[in-house]
Nucleic acid binder design. Sequence first.
DNA 1: AACAAGACCTGCATGC
DNA 2: TGCATGCAGGTCTTGT
Length: 275
Amino acid sequence: MPELPEVETIRRGLALRISGRQIVRAELRRPDLRRPFPPMLAERLQGARIGALARRGKYLLVELGDTGLLLLHLGMSGRITAGLTNTPPEKHDHVILTLDDGTVVRFNDPRRFGLIDYLERGAAGLHPLLAGMGPEPLEPGFDGAYLDRALAGKLTPIKAALLDQRIVAGLGNIYVCEALFRAGLSPRRLAATVAGARAVRLAAAIRAVLGEAIEAGGSSLRDYVQANGELGYFQHRWEVYGKEGEPCSACTCAEGVRRIVQSGRSTFYCAKRQR
DNA sequence: AACAAGACCTGCATGC
DNA sequence: TGCATGCAGGTCTTGT
């Protein structure tokens, strides 16, 4: 799944190609992804003018006409591409839009964990999927003091707490592992013990790793590409994620990076550097 | 109430 | 070659 940096990279690339354009044709090639498409989706898309593109956590928000808002989530394997080449649909191209300048936009998602919803723009803050979401980690207000407060009393491991979108929006498995490594904090540490100076370090690490990843165009895995089809390259700068057994970037201890499973998901960390 | 586990899907790498 | 297994960027629901 694209995490915050990948969604932000897609937002920026996509905005250049689709903002201000009109949708002349909307093809829904199946009725649902993770949940059914909202009623009248094809009709709402057809003929609509595309406005600004925003992001909230891992959600992409696309202004549609004067009052509409399209809500998109890419799940684990979702991709959105936009280009002028009108090749035949590929497997898992679930939604295909044609714009007034010939641009073809495709939502491709093999695993179908993605989501598309439609809402009235004024109601965005009240939407069940957006209400209750934690702060944007790259905006003012997300700092050590906030994290300290948000984690107080939480008896779950810090790894799990950071994946909780109600605490902070946009982090996923990769960037949580990388941020905890940078902050020198064990993923197994109870969230409540990340307070004071530790919370300050962690907030700074989260902001740094996300910022650098956006600059690098995100991390390209098997099925993530930017809106223009190019690959991001932050995956080359991972220090622990996917590196089981290898020495971490900061030490050469014999054991190397360790892989454990926390709430069903792989966690990578260096037991020597992270406490 | 808080937390962990299971479910939802397809594709790919690995090992026999 | 085929088949079984385990793993993958997320989140929603179920069960303890």
